[in-house]
């Protein structure tokens, strides 16, 4: 048990390092896209450690408690994440719903802490984040409903094995419409443009993060990196057939995240009600269509 927990912590740490490096590389890629030199690839690490070294302010116990709950919840979620077929901390317990709902503890902690700062912009940011969540989560979960219904198992490892068993038939190919919906929802989850409404630095002064500086902000950055790791890994495991070894995982992970980031860097930002309208129009219709086709008619490529 202790060994498993240590492996879990290792996975969470690995996720942090991986996502932070890839985010740094992506900053460089976006820099090149804009004909700039771009920062060093390890710039994200420097940013986080700088924040941790500063002397910050606090607005009372809930401000700190929320941050601890946020980071704790996200680390706990990451500890369940499988990296490959057989590399995971807790075998059989990598249930899909754990990731969707345990990640919510972290989000709740962050929201609580942000509202606890007493800044109206923070509350507006939280409101927008929750509204965005309401938008992207439903189409995404309908697609996952289809996948779990087809595989008959909600364990991520089993879903991976199912895809690998039938001749590398990834769900991105087997359920093309659903895969597209999944990717759009992933953009929403990662808070990439055009769904970046809840950060919006020029509009609501970076939303929930408005009052943070120093170690609290650093911890929220770590939380943000790990949650991005969880979300992208979920997409890789659900739609791209998971990974049999770690290199395959790294390649798939890199491709998915970079693609999302590239799309983000050429987009503007939606208004918050446009986000909701968008998700409840096309992605939801597509998800339902895909589910009806796959479950009731059984037409799976």
């Amino acid at each position: 048990m202790i060994l498993n927990i240590l492996i879990g912590i290792g996975i969470a740490f690995f996720g942090f390092v991986l996502q932070t490096s890839i985010a740094g590389i992506n900053r460089k890629i976006v820099g090149r896209l804009q004909k700039r030199h771009g920062p060093r690839w390890y710039q994200e690490f420097i940013d986080i450690f700088k924040l941790l070294s500063k002397r910050s302010i606090t607005h009372g116990w809930i401000f700190d408690f929320g941050v601890i709950m946020a980071l704790g919840g996200i680390i706990a979620t990451a500890m369940f994440m499988p990296l490959t077929n057989n590399f995971l901390a807790f075998e059989n317990f990598d249930n899909f719903f754990i990731f969707v709902y345990l990640i919510a503890v972290g989000m709740l902690g962050m929201a609580m802490s942000a509202s606890g700062s007493g800044n109206p912009w923070a509350s507006i940011g939280v409101m927008r984040a929750l509204t965005t969540m309401l938008a992207y989560e439903v189409p995404f979960l309908i697609v996952v409903l289809t996948i779990i219904n087809l595989t008959g198992n909600s364990s991520l490892t089993e879903i991976m094995l199912y895809q690998q068993a039938s001749g590398n038939n990834w769900f991105l190919i087997a359920l093309p419409i659903g895969g597209l919906v999944g990717f759009i929802a992933l953009m929403g989850m990662l808070g990439k443009k055009p769904f970046e409404t809840y950060v919006a630095p020029a509009e609501i002064a970076s939303g929930p993060m408005v009052e943070y500086g120093g170690k609290q902000l650093g911890m929220l950055f770590i939380m943000n990196e790990i949650s991005a790791f969880i979300e992208v890994s979920l997409f890789v495991h659900l739609f791209l057939g998971g990974a049999t070894n770690i290199f395959e995982f790294l390649i798939k992970y890199f491709v998915v995240y970079t693609l999302a980031n590239l799309i983000s860097s050429v987009n503007g930002r939606f208004k918050i009600d446009q986000v909701v309208k968008f998700f409840y129009k096309w992605p939801l219709i597509m998800a339902v269509t895909q589910a009806v086709i796959a479950i009731y008619f059984g037409w799976v490529i």
């Binding site: 601890i68 919840g73 680390i75 345990l102 170690k215 609290q216």
Partner: peptide
């Protein structure tokens, strides 16, 4: 695991420099 995660987060929080307490109205 949630307890373990929160424990790690608490450790990170506690080893770092102590924050300065400010009023709720002292906000951006």
């Amino acid at each position: 695991i949630f307890a373990v995660g929160s424990g790690i987060a608490f450790l990170i929080f506690i080893v770092l420099k102590k924050s300065r307490k400010v009023e709720l109205m002292d906000t951006y």
